[in-house]
Amino acid sequence: MGKKILYVEDDETLAFLTTDNLEHHYEVVHCNNGKKGFETFCTQAFDLVILDIMLPDMDGFQIAENIRKKNQEIPIIFLSAKTLKEDRIKGLKLGADDYLIKPYSIEELILKIEVFLQRSQKTTDKISIKNYSFGSFLFEPENYLVKNQHIKITLTEREAQLLKLFLDHPNMVLKREKILMELWGSDDYFLGRSLDVFISRLRKIIKEEPALAIENIPRVGFKWVVEEK
């Protein structure tokens, strides 16, 4: 069975052209307004979501935020004429996997779709993923959950991937480029800004753990520091 994509776009001409091209490769369900798009997401099963930002009834940011409350794993790609870096950063913070600026090429869109579908499939194919202990915390990568006897924190998918990367490389310097390529498959500047946000959140989680720290290595990257007991 082919992969099923939800595509939410109110520009009729663009929607027709994009849908017509994508349907050569995938099953595509198109919605022309935000409210209908989110309702459709809630009633059908999809493998990937493509969202415009400027939409009637509910904008793409709102849809993405609501989708992430229901599903942390499904890939989300924004397609938008909005070129401000703040908009790109906002989209990525909400849990989007990528952000393409209009006009975009169908070839590039399909390439990105394939990358995220393959990555999603690899995650699904993993039978079991080990849990990690650090400080007083237990980390369950499959559930994006960090917990101890006092608190439970649900991470975003990217935050969970970042934490796992650090835990797999204790006391090792990780270059920013390596982290970005591991998490997103790109070392784009705007993704780098999102990485800084994720680093900040992880630091808040471990701030009461004196033996743990995320150290900045200027102009290089970061190190997950674990002090020997």
Rank of each mutant, 00 (worst) to 15 (best):
residue 88 R to P: 00
residue 88 R to E: 14
residue 36 K to M: 10
residue 72 Q to R: 03
residue 38 F to Y: 15
residue 173 V to P: 08
residue 103 P to H: 08
residue 162 L to A: 03
residue 154 T to D: 03
residue 14 L to E: 12
residue 188 D to M: 04
residue 47 D to N: 13
residue 170 P to I: 03
residue 37 G to T: 13
residue 226 V to T: 09
residue 20 D to C: 11
residue 73 E to Q: 09
residue 155 L to Q: 10
residue 34 G to H: 01
residue 198 F to M: 15
residue 195 L to Y: 05
residue 202 L to V: 04
residue 105 S to D: 06
residue 15 A to Y: 10
residue 203 R to S: 10
residue 188 D to H: 10
residue 165 L to D: 08
residue 79 L to Q: 03
residue 220 V to P: 00
residue 171 N to M: 04
residue 107 E to H: 13
residue 151 I to C: 02
residue 141 P to S: 06
residue 188 D to E: 14
residue 178 K to S: 12
residue 140 E to N: 07
residue 95 G to W: 02
residue 100 L to I: 10
residue 226 V to K: 06
residue 162 L to N: 07
residue 154 T to A: 07
residue 136 S to C: 03
residue 52 D to M: 01
residue 28 V to H: 07
residue 214 I to E: 02
residue 229 K to G: 14
residue 214 I to M: 03
residue 172 M to D: 04
residue 81 A to P: 01
residue 173 V to L: 12
residue 214 I to L: 09
residue 19 T to S: 12
residue 6 L to C: 10
residue 67 I to K: 10
residue 215 E to T: 11
residue 143 N to Y: 10
residue 137 F to V: 06
residue 134 F to M: 13
residue 176 R to S: 15
residue 55 L to D: 00
residue 95 G to H: 04
residue 221 G to M: 05
residue 152 K to P: 00
residue 123 T to H: 13
residue 211 A to I: 15
residue 99 Y to P: 14
residue 159 E to Y: 10
residue 22 L to Y: 02
residue 215 E to P: 01
residue 118 Q to P: 08
residue 38 F to E: 00
residue 14 L to G: 07
residue 50 I to C: 08
residue 62 Q to H: 09
residue 205 I to Q: 12
residue 41 F to G: 04
residue 158 R to F: 14
residue 171 N to Q: 06
residue 209 E to F: 07
residue 62 Q to V: 07
residue 141 P to F: 02
residue 78 F to V: 12
residue 215 E to S: 09
residue 142 E to N: 11
residue 34 G to T: 05
residue 227 E to V: 11
residue 202 L to Y: 06
residue 82 K to P: 02
residue 201 R to M: 11
residue 84 L to D: 15
residue 95 G to E: 05
residue 180 L to M: 13
residue 112 K to F: 03
residue 158 R to T: 15
residue 31 C to E: 15
residue 34 G to Q: 05
residue 225 V to E: 08
residue 119 R to I: 00
residue 201 R to W: 02
residue 49 V to Q: 08
residue 75 P to D: 03
residue 224 W to Y: 12
residue 91 G to F: 01
residue 187 D to Q: 12
residue 199 I to Y: 03
residue 11 D to V: 06
residue 53 I to H: 03
residue 185 G to D: 03
residue 71 N to H: 06
residue 121 Q to I: 00
residue 221 G to T: 05
residue 65 E to F: 03
residue 37 G to I: 08
residue 170 P to Q: 02
residue 51 L to M: 01
residue 101 I to S: 05
residue 193 R to N: 13
residue 46 F to P: 01
residue 220 V to Q: 10
residue 111 L to W: 09
residue 170 P to A: 01
residue 209 E to D: 09
residue 96 A to V: 06
residue 29 V to K: 06
residue 129 I to T: 15
